[in-house]
Design a protein around this nucleic acid. Structure first.
Lengths: 97, 97
DNA sequence: ACAATAGGCAAGTATCTACTTGCCTGTCAA
DNA sequence: TTGACAGGCAAGTAGATACTTGCCTATTGT
């Protein structure tokens, strides 16, 4: 349990995808592919990116909504909270400026 | 960069080691081995656990201090903060009860 | 000194993971 | 309806990762 979350975060490409979705929410698979290629020099097949997105979705980090032939991807960071709940002391202090 | 942190967290045995160090700080390799075995039924060679500890140390999640023939391991959760700094919105609200 | 204890190094193996390629399905515009 | 576009499924492959075994070093107690 929680295994999928940490597995999802383990890959650098997947973390970059999360970065992209954090910057612009609701992107399609092709948009993400293009951005990975343009902005990060990641020349990866569409299939590979699709598989990464599936893992991110399985981890609950990405939510999807289908509209016609498009599938939009949105970031959901709430699963990350479990990390801090598990190992307290890792939270940014509530009293910091 | 930051790669070692996520790689370190990716393995369930390593996460259990972090749990154990969170519960009792300053354990030796043998103590950790025993606890993994007794409390979690993980019958793993001493070498395997040692390698896991090395990865956790490389990620900055574990700090070590040597005293004679003993090597004590301490948890350091500060690297985890980078996760929330990278994807904001994942922090537990400061205003929650 | 010697045996026991705590730990480290290195090489081998077996499984897992990322990525590819080829083909198939569903949606939309002309 | 036909072609183009967005996406999905499945099998194969190369490289990474977890774990083991065997041997070596350093510290400590008797």
């Amino acid at each position: 349990m929680g295994d999928e979350l940490f597995k999802a975060l383990a890959d650098p490409t997947r973390r970059t995808i999360l970065d992209e979705l954090a910057e612009r929410s609701g992107q399609t698979l092709f948009e993400i592919c293009t951005r990975l290629n343009m902005k990060h020099g990641i020349g990866m097949s569409r299939q590979a990116v699709s598989q990464h997105l599936a893992m991110l979705e399985a981890a609950g980090l990405v939510r999807t909504r289908r509209e016609g032939r498009y599938k939009f991807h949105d970031l959901d960071t709430t699963p990350l909270r479990r990390i801090h709940e598990r190992w307290p002391g890792s939270q940014t202090s509530e009293k910091d400026s």
